[in-house]
Amino acid sequence: MKGDRPVPGTHASSTTLRLTVTRGRVALIPLYVPLCIAAFFFVLPFLWMLSGAFKGPGEVTAFPPRFWPSHIDGRNFSTAAAGVSMWRYYGNSLFIAVVSTAGTLLSSSLTAFAFAHLRSRARGPLFAVLLATLMLPPFITLIPSYAIYQQLGWLDTYLPLTVPSFLGVGCAFYIFLLRQFFLGIPKELFEAARIDGAGRLRQYASIALPLAKPALITVGLFQFVASWNDFFGPLIFLTDSSKFTLPVGIRFFQSLYQTDYGTLMAASCLTVAPVILLFLVAQKFFVQGIATTGGKT
């Protein structure tokens, strides 16, 4: 299998194009129907979120449901932004996401490189252990790790949300992904470097990492989004409200007894917008990274 893998970063050529173009694009038109129907349902929740965010208080729960608000009411956004230090929560979320992404990239690449190219008798069993952690339910470690953090005095700080990523906790999937990628790098490159006198660290830093850029960007993006969306971690470990992140801050709009849908939707839009923007800007990397790693198992 390894021999068949093209050098990472390239795609299949477009020989197919020549053959199918002669069949004409007309044959593809019936595809639009299922594609558009599917696309509609995939996008519907976001459209609804947007529509709800702009509705005035009386309209959100009006019946029958109407898509267009009778008049665009931006009040929800100002309430949402002003009510609970939205901008501070943005900053907190950003900080935690960036730091945990950096940590993930560091620890995952180191570990993946070891599993891919460094030999040891323990490698096989340890890799199996790594795969086993993929299947670990998060609750198994939740309460005991809370106790550990309490002993360390890390509660109500950002440490439980950032340090574990530097130690590869929860990165099993990324390590797996990067290992697949590293395995695709021809051994000859490392051999050449070794002959030149480069140590392992140098081989890792100057050969493996640069070649793995698409995969690293993918891992980074996924981890960023996962950290941005994480609500359980900050909920459990943070008590000072000034440290809250966006997913926790959004819950202020869902009181114990009833939900103010207008402001909740506005706040949701604000939370979700950066991720959508990031995705739109970087989706090329998302796709490219997965294309060169996930497809090969």
Partner: peptide
């Protein structure tokens, strides 16, 4: 020695695994 390099590279993950995963498990 490759084995030494292996353990060195693996050290962070191992620390995290033992302390924050295996221990709580």
């Amino acid at each position: 020695s490759e084995s030494a390099a292996f353990w060195l590279f693996l050290a962070p993950w191992l620390a995290g695994f033992l302390g924050l995963t295996l221990g709580p498990m």
